[in-house]
Design a protein around this nucleic acid. Structure first.
Lengths: 149, 149
DNA sequence: TTATTTAAAATGTTGTTACATTTAATGTAA
DNA sequence: TTACATTAAATGTAACAACATTTTAAATAA
């Protein structure tokens, strides 16, 4: 059951053209499963991603600008996503000492605790779904990196 | 310049965990470029995808249900996307003879003409960006299919 | 210094997505 | 046949994304 059956298109112009569709389709397939996981913890995908970045910085803060830089989807609205996370008590905001224009964002204890719970779920999901050997996954990474180069 | 540099994360739990991020990041990278192409022809990505499906059916119609089935993003609102395409004169709608609940959607001459123009652009873009050999692309397809299996 | 430009974050606006509900037609069972 | 369930499409609504504009602060130039 390859991509051709999945999207009911039997022929492609080239293996490369097929790979482009395959990447986009596989990404949507993965993300749909992530969305379900995140939703069961009351988070959206961008909210989860921002929490992950903040944990990476912890105990240091991240400015909103840093969040924008690191987010996979650059054009989304980091400021309003931080609003939502703050409303839920998962992050804290405070004015940056060095630059009063900037805002320091920290992950809270509640945020860390939530991520810890989600780590377990993510691990379970990954182990349950991993059909590739480490060697195959490494090849996949090499090819994707080459594709974007 | 691999995914680690791209998203500024130096370590991953496994090659598989890295591959998941890599697929999602690569998909976003590809789609951002598509969005620019489509936008220069006044289309969004879902609108383009629906036109492609309708061309695949041409000269036969597709019902809205068939469009939903074939769309990569199933949950999006096919009915309203068809609205937009109809407003632009790129598709035509008519009541289905066999089932008066259903609606037959056809691509119009203007729609076919637009897609033809975009085919040229897409080919140019693909050729300009293809950094993989056909063999590499084929391996990539095999691995992605296996990942979803 | 004062004016101008640049930068960081927040906000306004418009269109879209996700999801639920409605409307109308068809299928099916009593 | 009537009643009930199912299906196809459209529509209502709330949250979200994309993109422009505004606000405040900092950097730079005259």
């Amino acid at each position: 059951m390859g991509i051709a059956e999945d999207i009911k298109q039997e022929t492609f112009k080239s293996e490369y053209a097929k790979a482009i569709i395959n990447i986009i389709f596989s990404s949507a397939w993965l993300q749909q499963q992530h969305v379900q996981l995140f939703k069961s913890n009351g988070l959206t995908t961008p909210q989860y991603n921002i929490l992950r970045i903040l944990r990476g910085q912890h105990p240091n803060p991240a400015t909103v600008n840093l969040l924008i830089e690191r987010m996979l989807d650059k054009s989304s609205n980091a400021s309003r996503i931080v609003d939502k996370l703050e409303q839920k008590g998962l992050v804290k905001r405070s004015q940056c000492k060095n630059d009063r224009r900037a805002v320091d964002v920290y992950i809270s204890e509640a945020g860390l605790k939530l991520l810890k719970e989600m780590d377990v779920k993510m691990d379970e999901w990954e182990n349950a779904n991993n059909t590739l050997t480490e060697t195959e996954a490494a090849t996949l990474n090499t090819l994707l990196d080459k594709l974007r180069s």
